[in-house]
Nucleic acid binder design. Structure first.
Lengths: 349, 349
DNA sequence: GCGGTAAGGGAAAACCTTTTCCCAGCTAAG
DNA sequence: CTTAGCTGGGAAAAGGTTTTCCCTTACCGC
């Protein structure tokens, strides 16, 4: 029983190889390979016999060996600096979703804001012969802290600032803002305020401009956006500014907020002042961060950036680049959608 | 100029191989390999010359070829069903952090709650010859929807229910609860209530038991936990129950909440009733979800599960298993820590 | 019966690196 | 001078698969 005495490592036997399949089936490895890949010529019986043998033995081809030869690893790298963020998660899920059933796996690399770490990850990915790289971040007007411009593999940028001449996918913030403001217009709101984040964010200006545009197109009174922080506290303060002055006449009857946290602050502050949402004032947020939007009282209508779809598109775009299809460089904007809940006056059907 | 006319694929030349380095340095590939890996015997000059050549040419060894030979791919798979969750992110960051400087990359696989998808991912990972797998989820008392019990590679479970006989790492919820309740005791709070999530969660019972234990040890009056949902709304309702009865004497002077959202609801509800936090009632949450804890007024003291550390430990544990070290099977509980802010009465500092 | 052709299958190179031997040359001891 | 031992370096196999040729056999028409 000496065989039994062997200290089984972690677990049993090595994987079954094509050579073994061929031996059992009584053919050469070449024939076995061709049988399993549907290549070459042989009788249907031979092919079927080999296939059956492989199935019986539980043969699975060694991806490493395949990749070495084919020069395709069926692996891509996903680079992000949004460690804890809620933007990268849906995006990653979308990427993974688009790739999994093409047999492509995703290396997740978190580079924080550390150039050295980024370099390290990129080199590791290239060493492992990824077929391509998706770069993603936490805001669309900033570069990742790592240079991806002259790599041997294609790169797609999603929700982060692309290099010039590269393929980039971002959400259409202006379009999203239009959705919100136009929704208010349709509901008959006349004085639509805009409370947003810091002026250093490009999206703040894009959304503010869309807000202005819609007001003008609709013939509503212009209103300057209030810029502050991406926080509940700023929502409170903005309400103090907007609704501080006496005389309801000057008050807005709708507030479009730059994110859901601001919106949450706005709604809480309005309630504290006895102003009813949505009767007196409608509120719409941005990001559709469900856990916030649904906990808000009343539940918050919000603009969703469709990040999972963005991720899917990024995955598909990368795949076609890897396949050799030239993709049109430049930034492609994907539409947002409005998720209507109860904070804007329209009953959710 | 026919060479110029060639449609450059995506980008230039193939990577430089060891063979080329050897040719340029005027040695055999065997010697080149040994020079770069510090193996074999040769004059210092030869070794240095080869190294320099490799550096000059920008040689990077092909991981695929190395892995094929060494039977180590320096990749691991990370399986999760917590797509949008805030638990898996810090955990993943920890895992990645622990592995990156050992040259190990991480395949991120999101399996939702779909057995078929899980199977697909696991097979893809095994085909790609991952060295091991880390399984993680959104709660520690549920299995992933996929069987990892008889794989050819080691598996470590982190923040999810492990298979019997496997290595599992979870947060010490009871310990975390003790931290919170004992902190209240030290601050002189006498009537410490507990508002938690649904009874179907194991952690709810573990934390409730710890709460009871500390009260008993300290000689404080017992109090039954209030079980509900993981939501702000439940926090509001719990306050209505706890503080509804007339006569302040029966009111708690501290509430330990099962998560930060409940705590947020509790604090908001208390404020609406004119009960001051932390003067009249101290509140402590669980999870230390910073974006919520810091937006709460006052900022919320909360128990942090140290998920990044958990992830790091999981990564290291897996690595040692891969290295052949037998790890003690069973569940290891990692300590939580209390992050003190202003909601419990102790000034931060 | 012969030439031609197509079908069925195999040998071997290729992918890139690591590692085990082995060899040639030299030195030092006997 | 012989032998042992060491030094510096190379040849070749190994790892698992794919793919390009090539060879054999059988069949067909004449």
């Amino acid at each position: 029983m000496s065989a039994d005495a062997e200290p089984a490592p972690v677990s049993a036997k090595p994987p079954v190889t094509l050579r073994e399949v061929a031996a059992v089936a009584g053919v050469s490895v070449a024939t076995a390979s061709k049988a399993l890949n549907g290549q070459g010529r042989m009788t249907a019986e031979t092919r079927e016999r080999i296939r059956e043998t492989a199935r019986l033995l539980g043969f699975r081809p060694n991806s490493l060996a395949q990749s070495l030869l084919r020069k395709r690893s069926f692996t891509v790298g996903l680079l992000t600096n949004d460690t804890y963020g809620r933007f990268s998660l849906p995006l990653m899920a979308g990427v993974s979703d688009a790739l999994v059933d093409k047999g492509v796996s995703v290396f997740l690399c978190n580079v924080e804001d550390d150039t050295r770490l980024g370099q390290l990850h990129v080199e590791a990915m290239l060493d492992k012969r990824v077929d391509g790289i998706i770069a993603t971040g936490k805001r669309i007007d900033r570069h990742l802290p790592v240079d991806l411009s002259n790599l041997r593999v294609p790169v797609v940028y999603a929700f982060t600032q692309p290099d010039p001449g590269a393929v980039g996918l971002v959400s259409d913030d202006a379009g999203g803002a239009r959705l919100a403001v136009e929704h208010f217009c349709r509901l008959g709101r006349r004085r639509i305020a805009h409370v947003s984040g810091p002026a250093s964010f490009a999206v703040v200006h894009a959304r503010a401009q869309a807000h202005r545009d819609v007001l003008e197109e609709t013939g509503l009174p212009a209103s300057e956006p209030l810029l502050g922080a991406w926080s509940e506290a700023w929502g409170h303060e903005a309400v103090a500014r907007l609704f501080g002055k006496a005389g309801r006449e000057g008050w807005p009857d709708a507030v479009f907020c730059g994110n859901d946290q601001i919106a949450r602050g706005v709604i809480d502050a309005l309630r504290e002042r006895g102003i009813d949402v949505p009767r007196d004032v409608g509120v719409i947020g941005f990001d559709n961060w469900e856990i916030v939007a649904e906990a808000t009282r009343p539940p918050l209508t919000s603009v969703d950036m469709n990040l999972a779809a963005l991720g899917r598109e990024a995955g598909l775009a990368l795949l076609s680049l890897v396949g050799g299809q030239p993709a049109a460089p430049g930034i492609r904007k994907l539409p947002c959608r409005l998720v209507v809940r109860q904070s804007c006056g329209s009953p959710p059907e």
